[in-house]
Design a protein around this nucleic acid. Structure first.
Lengths: 337, 337
DNA sequence: CCACCAAATCTAATCGTTTAGCTGCGTTCG
DNA sequence: CGAACGCAGCTAAACGATTAGATTTGGTGG
């Protein structure tokens, strides 16, 4: 802390420029001098100050990750993958949680600018993304939108094909003979909510079916929410024979309802979901679900980001969409009643 | 980025000192001037550079969190709680994963110093903690050790009473009539591994029991590890009537073994664990386990850290130990055979 | 009416790096 | 032999904020 490049230079009997050259390997320094410098660095346990560096050439070696719900295991996993990715590039990861609140996102983006982070991966919060977008325009802060798409396609985005996910699961359920299929979806103003629901609708309509409105519920992607709305649906005497749950956290809530109501799956009802969470693998029965390649998605997002950091704004915006895979568990069976 | 305090000063027709005073509210500025400055700030969308600030008074507004396994849901939850806590204090959270490797921890700590983070919460990696400790001495970097204790008590620590956790679970199993109790523990050089195992031993010895060596296995806190060693134990014809699993991730692996071997819990065997993970709540049957107050622990760690940041090294090192709570699920029953 | 004081604002040094340009010196070649 | 050149290393000016101390201003009391 107290030791600066000057101290090193003095001890080694050279100029600060030479020390800098040695440290950054940015110019040739004769072996003897080089050795003296390195010895001095070691002796003083000198660490260059990133603050001073940042000040000089505007790069902070920081990448920010702003997720919409850090309590969601899906995003926890994204954090994990992102940390590994940025570490490989030599960056450090600053993590923020917008908690689905636009005002938090605003505050956070201001902070990101303040820290002069070199780039940011954002899971945009609902309808207020215009704001993020504006920041993007104004400041040319390299940015990748993650997981949810927004109207404006001028940003780099990494998303999943939500419609395909909904379709995939629904087709599977229909093939098993189900006709009374219900669903618990996420907020319909998010592509992760809307898209999955639309996929389900498409699949049903393609087979001449329409979901009964009383079997359709939407709400926040949270376990308690899922618990209470699933309970409403499942306590009906004419409950659906199958339920499509829009995300992993919600699926947990639904499984809890089944346990509490004494329903057995898949005997009494079939359950399938999208966006499973790590750890859910231990559920009995294993859930039939679509999975997204979280790690690949995260790596791709950071690849795009670093590329934009390096090459600037002359890169065309890129929109990468990942496809879901249907994973069969034991939570779905042929239609009963 | 391009707009500096000078630009603001010029536009407002004042000196940079005045702008600084207004922004930081650090000296009285007459209302009219103040207003002009604020207007200029708004017009230029000016954001102060944290890099310059850090350089000037050595504070970076960054707190680092170094966990030993970011893929573990326990630590994912710690990240979540920590982000919320540091945000409340006005800091940003830089997250690192040492992945249980001492050399990673070393590299990370160097980086933390480089960034001149104001403080760091570390989950120390195994036996190499001496190194972290040394860093601590040398540089007076405010630091709190989290989750695992180390020999040296000169650092602030926030830990859990692992021995109590092991004892609590084991006593419960013994009370149910179990005598042939096995265990899958974590690495014995970590207090989280050793302590829980010791607690189990204590509880058994207090009742005049000794665990059979063939029912005791230890290994890394990972699901696959637990899966394979649990399989070894459970395939024996004389398998134990109860198993104590040292952590949540491992418990998932064990439940998977049960499913694969067609064993039913608690009919065929009782399972209990420590350190449950979020989401595991959806398991059928619900696991009997000890839980730790993750959020309170994390908050406490950051309280200690911020306090040390503010008050410096004249604060005595504090060691806070949290007690586990036994949560009853349906995964344990009276002894069978 | 002037000297003096306090309050408001400004000037300029400073934090620790990087880096453009400069210096001095040994080679090379006409 | 001397001009020209290349090279290793140096000097000093940034980067953008904070802040001690200087300066201005207006008001007050003698």
């Amino acid at each position: 802390m107290a030791t600066t490049i000057r101290d090193v230079a003095r001890l080694a009997g050279v100029s600060t420029a030479t020390v800098s050259a040695v440290i950054n390997d940015t110019a040739f320094v004769s072996p003897p001098l080089r050795e003296r410098v390195l010895a001095a660095v070691r002796e003083l346990a000198y660490t260059p100050s990133q603050a001073a560096r940042s000040l000089k050439h505007g790069k902070s070696q920081l990448i920010a990750l702003v997720v919409s719900d850090l309590a969601n295991p899906f995003f926890a996993r994204v954090v994990w993958a992102a940390e590994a990715a940025v570490a490989a590039w030599g960056y450090s990861l600053v993590v923020y949680n917008s908690d689905e609140k636009p005002e938090n996102e605003r505050r956070i983006m201001a902070r990101v600018r303040e820290l002069s982070c070199d780039g940011v991966v954002v899971v945009p919060v609902g309808p207020a993304t215009y704001r993020t977008q504006r920041d993007f325009d104004g400041k040319a802060l390299p940015m990748v939108l993650f997981g949810r798409s927004v109207e404006d396609k001028r940003a780099d985005t990494v998303t999943i094909d939500n419609v395909a996910a909904g379709r995939l699961v629904t087709n599977y359920l229909i093939d098993l003979g189900h006709r009374r299929i219900g669903t618990i979806t996420g907020p319909l103003h998010l592509t992760t909510g809307r898209g999955r629901y639309d996929g389900m609708l498409q699949a049903m309509q393609a087979r001449g079916l329409t979901p009964a409105p009383e079997y359709v519920r939407s709400g926040e992607f949270r376990e308690e929410v899922a618990y209470s709305v699933a309970r409403e649906i499942l306590e009906r005497p004419d409950r659906p024979t199958a339920l499509y749950i829009a995300n992993g956290v919600m699926a947990l809530g639904v499984m809890r309802v089944l346990a509490d109501l004494g329903l057995e799956c898949p005997r009494d009802i079939s359950i399938a979901s999208t966006d499973t969470i790590s750890g859910i693998g231990g559920l009995q029965p294993r859930l039939t679900r679509t999975e997204h390649p979280i790690i690949e998605m995260t790596n791709e997002a950071l690849r795009l980001l670093v590329d934009r950091i390096d090459r600037g704004n002359d890169v065309q915006p890129r929109n990468v969409v990942f496809q879901p895979t249907l994973i069969l568990g034991e939570s779905c069976g042929p239609v009963v009643a």
